[in-house]
Amino acid sequence: MIKLVAIDVDDTLLNSQGKLLESTKRTIKQAVEQQVKVVLCSGRPLAGVKHFLQELNIVADDQYVITFNGSVIESVTGKVLKKSGLSFTTALEIEQYSQRHDVAFNFVDANSRIITSNHHVGRITVVQAWENSAGILVRATKELSKDNQIIKAVFGDEQKKLDDIENDVIRQFGAENYVVRAADNFLEVMHKNVDKGAALKFLTAKLGLVPSDVMVIGDERNDIPMFNFAGTAVVMGNGSDLAKEHADYVTSSNDADGIEQAFNEFVFK
C-alpha cells in the first residue's frame, strides 16, 4: 500500500505551460483526503512551490516538501527538518569559474533570494526568479556575509553553453559537491551529501515509513536518486530516456493526465 507519493514539480506535476491540470488537482486532493502523504520534491525553493501547495490543499503542519533538489527538507509551513548549504569558499570559486567561462550563474539562499554578480542578468536567471516568485539581488560574492546561507549555485544559461561546460564543472566541483543537470538550462551545484533521494530517505525514516511504502513520480536525471530509493518508480511519458531506464512504470505525459494515471495504477487500488 502506497503511503507517501513524492512528486517532482517542473514537467511532472506541472504541464508544459507550467500549470496544474484539473485531473492532477482532483487526484492529489483525493489522495490527501485518504491520508496519503504527497510530498513535492523540487529544485525550487519553498517560495517557488507554495502557490501549488495551496492549490492542492497541502497546507497542514504535518505535510512536507523537499526543496533545492534535496538541500532542504521542511514542512509546508516552513519548519526546517534538515538543511545543507554550500561553503563560502565554494561560492567564491563558482563565481570565478562563471567569469572565466562567461556563463550566467546565481546563488539561491535560505530565504529563496536569487543572488548574482552578473550585472547583465541572464535571461534564464530572470525566468528562474519569476517562476520562484523571487527578486534578484545583484551582489559580488565577497560582498555577502560569510554567515549568508547559500543553499545552491545555479549555472543558468542556454543549453549549448551548459552542454559545453557540464563535464568540466563536474571535474572542477563534483568531488566536493553534488553537481546535477536539473534541466536543459540549469546546471546546479549543491552540498555533497544531498540529492532528492537522500532527502526522501531522511523524511520517510522520520515518518516511520520504508521504501515499499513510497511511490516517486519524476521526469529527469535529478529524480533518479529518488527512483533508486522508492519501492515504486514512475517516470512521465515526457521524461528523459535516462530517467525511463530507472522506471518501474512509464505513465502518460504531463499534458495527458500522467499524474492521474499513475495514482490510479498504484494508489487508488
Rank of each mutant, 00 (worst) to 15 (best):
R26C: 03
G70S: 09
K83R: 11
K50N: 11
R113E: 14
L86T: 05
V65N: 08
I28W: 11
P45T: 08
L81C: 01
Y64D: 01
F105Q: 03
Q128T: 13
E93P: 00
S75N: 05
K83P: 02
D61I: 03
L53T: 01
Q54E: 13
L86E: 12
S42P: 10
I66L: 13
Y97F: 15
E74A: 11
A31F: 03
Q128I: 02
K50L: 13
N15V: 05
R44S: 01
V39E: 01
G78Q: 06
T24W: 08
G122K: 03
V49S: 02
R113C: 10
D102M: 03
G78C: 09
H120W: 00
N106R: 00
V59L: 07
L46R: 06
C41N: 03
Q54D: 07
D62N: 14
F88V: 00
V65Y: 12
V76R: 10
N69G: 09
Q63E: 15
A60T: 07
L56D: 10
Q17W: 06
I114C: 14
T125R: 06
K50W: 12
I73C: 12
V36F: 13
G48R: 01
V126A: 11
E93Y: 04
H101Y: 14
V80T: 07
V127F: 04
D102A: 10
L21A: 08
V121N: 12
V76H: 10
A91F: 03
N69Y: 09
P45V: 13
L56C: 04
E74N: 02
F68S: 07
S98Y: 10
V65F: 11
P45K: 10
L40V: 08
K25C: 09
T27W: 05
G70A: 11
G70T: 09
E55Y: 06
I115M: 11
V49T: 01
T67M: 15
E74K: 08
D61P: 00
V121T: 14
G78W: 04
N111A: 06
G43K: 06
V36M: 07
R26P: 01
S42E: 08
F68C: 09
L56W: 04
Q17V: 02
Q17Y: 11
G85E: 04
L20Q: 05
K82C: 01
L46A: 01
I114E: 13
P45S: 15
K29R: 15
S98I: 08
K29D: 10
G48D: 00
N118D: 15
I66D: 04
S87D: 05
N15C: 09
T67S: 15
S42L: 10
E74R: 13
V32I: 09
V32T: 06
L40D: 08
H119L: 14
L86I: 10
A31Y: 02
Q34C: 02
L56I: 08
H101E: 14
L56Y: 05
L92G: 09
V108Q: 11
G122Q: 03
P45C: 12
E93Q: 15
V126C: 14
H119T: 14
S42D: 07
S117F: 12
F107E: 12
D61S: 13
V127Y: 01
I58Y: 02
T77W: 00
R123K: 07
